[in-house]
Design a protein around this nucleic acid. Structure first.
Lengths: 232, 232
DNA sequence: ACCTGAACACCGTTCAAGT
DNA sequence: ACCTGAACACCGTTCAAGT
């Protein structure tokens, strides 16, 4: 649980302390616990005191995103564009795994903050430094989408099966009847035991599989000197 | 704006009417307007009357997703897997474009509903029918992620530039100074006027660019008889 | 047995009254 | 001039009192 401030607090409140406390609260409890009132109590101040340091709750969430994005490693020097971008995105992913609430907050922001623009600008610069045309870089950034932050929408969030093995087996039989294709890819067939598809799945593998598929595709287009259809 | 029910309502409330009213309210106003209290008022009933037809607000949102997903075209017969899946996903996209609130609601659901599982099951089935191995189909579904619903996370939501042309020009000069790479791909260079990169960008083009890049990648892996590393 | 108004435990934010 | 308690306008949901 989040640390309580002791009776006589010393450090005066500032924006940075507010943001770090909000991140800690989201980490320790849940993002739903991050209300202005709850956060104020955690800091030992009256709710209205927060409004001196953040304009409103939206700006608080923006600030929390900035704290997270600030933890992503800077670009690695020396490596070629593909390795460097791959490395950087996997660094973003490691940050997000430490703060599971962050991906949904990033998604929820209607406008990018300056810190977010800094990160995106530098990723764009990495493609450009690799020789990508302005045109191709534009499309490639769109194709990456949220993967540039190290996450994607999970299609099957949370196992639908109960914890109890016997109940799980029964639930699985029912699932197989109604959704045979899902059941098949969820567990893999018995004759395919060496596969990575097994009980649950390896999210890191899936992420890298898709990332590499995209990066390989980008590389191929770049090498072919890809241009928009109306220019070819 | 949403239609008001006239004084003497006739049709008794049922789950379907509740869900359709919620979708209409989200379409006409905004998803933020879809509160139990607001929705009840729209239907001319007391808030608690809704709880007879949906267990709670979470189930209301699930039901709204079901209404949306139910509008996606069934699989096209006859076409090869690539064309058929492409077509189906673009149909999902057309549905989502009619209901702009839907993508964020789909993302927010912690567990898939039966209708959602039906759709996913049938997409999985389309890959399997195209000869994809269970293994590859698993990874390919993960790689599609939210694109199977016809959307992806927008990296630059809403133009950061003001509407006034003069102010926009000034803002853009400042943007260019701080974020030169973003400025470059946002507008494209002057000598590249034929490009699709121009004032703003064509979201449909970007979606299809990324979708085709992925589908082409899937096809290549399938043709090469791709297997997990530990099996090769 | 069915329905529902009042109440509870929350929100984010405004604003006037206090120092 | 600064700070903040009370208040406002909302939430989702419970529950007991009413029919």
């Amino acid at each position: 649980m989040a640390q309580k401030v002791d009776g006589a607090r010393r450090a005066p409140l500032n924006r940075d302390r507010v943001l770090r406390a909000a991140v800690a609260l989201a980490d320790d409890a849940a993002i739903e616990s991050v209300s202005m009132r709850n956060l104020a109590q955690e800091l030992g101040v009256v709710p209205m005191a927060l409004y001196r340091h953040v304009a409103n709750k939206e700006q608080l969430l923006d600030g929390m995103v900035d704290v997270i994005v600030g933890q992503i490693d800077p670009p690695a020097g020396g490596a070629d564009w593909k390795a460097a971008i791959r490395q950087r995105i996997l660094s973003a992913r490691r940050v997000l795994l430490r703060h599971p609430w962050a991906s949904s907050v990033i998604e929820s922001r209607p406008r990018p903050t300056l810190v977010v623009l800094d990160y995106l600008n530098s990723v764009v610069g990495m493609f450009r430094a690799g020789g990508f045309s302005v045109d191709l870089t534009h499309h490639v950034m769109h194709a990456l989408g949220s993967r540039v932050w190290g996450f994607t929408q999970e299609l099957f969030p949370g196992s639908p099966l109960p914890a109890d093995p016997e109940q799980a087996a029964a639930a699985f039989r029912e699932l197989s009847g109604r959704y045979p294709h899902i059941a098949e890819i969820a567990t893999g067939p018995a004759h395919d035991e060496g596969s990575v598809v097994g009980q649950g799945c390896d999210d890191q593998f899936e992420f890298e599989f898709a990332l590499d598929l995209l990066l390989d595709g980008f590389e191929r287009l770049h090498q072919q000197g890809w241009r928009s259809a109306n220019q070819s």
